[in-house]
Design a protein around this nucleic acid. Sequence first.
DNA 1: CCACGAGGATGCACGTCGTGCATTGATGCA
DNA 2: TGCATCAATGCACGACGTGCATCCTCGTGG
Lengths: 252, 252
Amino acid sequence: MIGLPGRPGPAVIMGRHDDGPARGNVMAGTAPPTPPVAAALPEVGRRERKKLATRAAVRDAALRLAVRHGVENITVEQIATEADIALRTFFNHYSSKEEAVVAAAAAGAEALVVEFRARPAAESVLQALREAVLVVMDRHDAAGRDHLRALRLMRESPSLMPQQMAVLTAQEQALARAVADRVGPPAVEGGPTSIYPQLCAAAALAALRVVLDRWLGHATDPDDAPPLAVLRREVDEALAHLATGLDTVAGT
Amino acid sequence: MIGLPGRPGPAVIMGRHDDGPARGNVMAGTAPPTPPVAAALPEVGRRERKKLATRAAVRDAALRLAVRHGVENITVEQIATEADIALRTFFNHYSSKEEAVVAAAAAGAEALVVEFRARPAAESVLQALREAVLVVMDRHDAAGRDHLRALRLMRESPSLMPQQMAVLTAQEQALARAVADRVGPPAVEGGPTSIYPQLCAAAALAALRVVLDRWLGHATDPDDAPPLAVLRREVDEALAHLATGLDTVAGT
DNA sequence: CCACGAGGATGCACGTCGTGCATTGATGCA
DNA sequence: TGCATCAATGCACGACGTGCATCCTCGTGG
């Protein structure tokens, strides 16, 4: 998800196909089936590739500067310069620096939904979700230190929180649909849709958000990640709570 | 492909207790605002009261204009004029029009936490939460049409979503603390804090958000609220799901 | 091979945002 | 009554975000 190329050059191309800046909030785009690791298909011409490259350059430049100087202390102009584009062009891709910074992280949430859908139908909803989380976690674990720094940036920048939540809710909708597809169509066609998919997706993502937040908070030293094993355990614990019910009375 | 005021969109419980001078009508001596639950505050002098009044005036003016013209189509200057204050003064209270508009809603979420804390310890966490929700719901039901319009505004204004989520997460923290207090201190002093409070608070608020969102979505006609009974039922259903566990396998 | 249409990158102008700084007037206090 | 405080204001200014016209590159049909 995060990718921090050393130079503003052509970066990894990852999904995100929508045109036009998203006024005020984030994309809820359904990128064409672009599995986690995308391969350049002849589908896109040089033109499209250049556009994507520019987009990626902007995104990475934004993240790089934000990690180094803090989101509050950088201007869109600086990002544009770093990405070697005109100021005006920046707004052709993102409508604010916050959106650009968070965009780099959005892929993570998208990947989760993709992996979830890929799980066999035999698994229960929360089981499938757990496995999907593990897959995404492992993959991102390889991203290393830069990736961790980016996560901390997200966690500790108040001004990014809104954008993050926006991404999260967008993915919540996607996950809700995935859950609905998994449990099958409602008994009655056209009948009142069950609240279950939305509820489950919302609760699950909220749980994962809490877990990740706690995990990032555990670390006493910056750049020092608590063992991944801890994260796994807490994910399991949280999902287990959801699965078995989380009501409690005083003294328990 | 995103900025359209469409289906997805969170909402927040909101209430509008107006204390301050409401444009063109009574502006009594401004008796100390009457928060959800009485609070004796003999401490406030005229100075503080005036400040609060100004704040309320700004908040209400923002909400009123936003409901009438849409958040996107109003400027801070208009709000300031409507509230009869200088432009600069606006920023002494809120840092953006979105914040001002949503501020009116924040009280709702705060009230929920307050009511939750007021529930007897004998009730389980989710029971207490349910009762608290009902209390807040009933109280706000009396607010009538304007209140409903405000809720719809929140739901359908993409640019407000970030601020709403900010309010929501703030209350999530407060609720998490309340839950922690309710279930009692951890067995081991200073030991690793349980994830339960945060998890529970996050899941519960996420559930309530989904329920409210669905409820607002049910209505086919604007200004026409689905019966409150439906809301109650869905709240119960959602919390019941959380209480008994929400795992499921295909075909269930 | 070339002219032409589509679309991305830019430059420019402009209105709105949000903040720092200095000033004023009402308020609270000794 | 004299003084300290603080909300409200006015002013200046840099950053933001968008509409519009233009230039240039890529993709295509002739």
